[in-house]
Design a protein around this nucleic acid. Structure first.
Lengths: 131, 131
DNA sequence: ACTTGCCTTGACGCGGACGTCAACGTCTAG
DNA sequence: CTAGACGTTGACGTCCGCGTCAAGGCAAGT
């Protein structure tokens, strides 16, 4: 298939596919007229890249998976280097979760404080003068 | 004080301070020789920006706080627009936490799967032939 | 006079993953 | 024959928050 069809079937833009090629992640054969020609393996490869991106891997980090697939393995994560990336990303995710949790808490505190100053002490309401 | 001192006292680089000025967040008077002159209010303002950045606000999002301070309020979050930013960022943080939690879980699943395929079924160990 | 250290503006660089445009070739349908 | 859909390469633009020069002006100490 050509680049347009691959784009359509994966939901990745043609621009992105050419970019992947630039980065050495995707290798296309060329037909006589210079058009890129892809096969089903390429389709799988692009899908793998997509999946990995959705779980937060950068393009660079998908490289081990791509090379693993290219070297004949059935899945991209059959190789040690890919598994290592999984481990790293898990750690990163945990670290980020921790930081973000702290930030969320700080934000909540700040918001509460601002609201409290805005409408001072809605719990211990200052007595309104009774007529 | 001049830009160097302000930088030193806040830990923000001079480059950043000039950048804030470019963005209209920080206004400096100029002394006769063209040097920027800052006062204690500016110091507070920069500190406010710093604090807000550490809880995930972009520079653009600190603008309401800065303007709130400029308009004479004691704290940057005394104004409705600032409080609105707090609310938005809290929502964003929650959304991000949810997504990231999901991603972390997916990563864990993928890692487990890869390890399982690598060393097939370490739970139901295939019987090794007994001599 | 000279060095040192602070200050000025302006302009380009970075990372990540492409978007967008230009200017052109190719294939297919009517 | 021509229009339109698809393909090609190359290069610059985007977002964000500055970093990093470059090429100087200004002030103070020796």
């Amino acid at each position: 298939m050509r680049i347009g069809e691959l784009a359509q079937r994966t939901g990745v833009t043609t621009r992105a596919l050419r970019f992947y090629e630039d980065q050495g992640l995707l290798a296309a054969r060329r037909s006589a007229n210079g058009y890129r020609e892809y096969d089903e393996d390429d389709l799988q490869l692009v899908k793998e890249i997509q999946t990995l991106q959705t779980v937060g891997l950068t393009l660079e980090e998908t490289r081990p998976f791509v090379e693993c697939l290219r070297s004949g393995h059935e899945t991209g994560d059959a190789c040690a280097s890919s598994i290592e990336v999984y481990r790293r990303k898990l750690e990163e995710a945990d670290a980020l979760l921790a930081r973000l949790g702290g930030i969320r808490a700080e934000l909540a505190v700040k918001l509460a404080g601002a609201l409290a100053r805005q409408a001072p002490d809605p719990c211990v309401v200052p007595e309104s003068p009774r007529p």
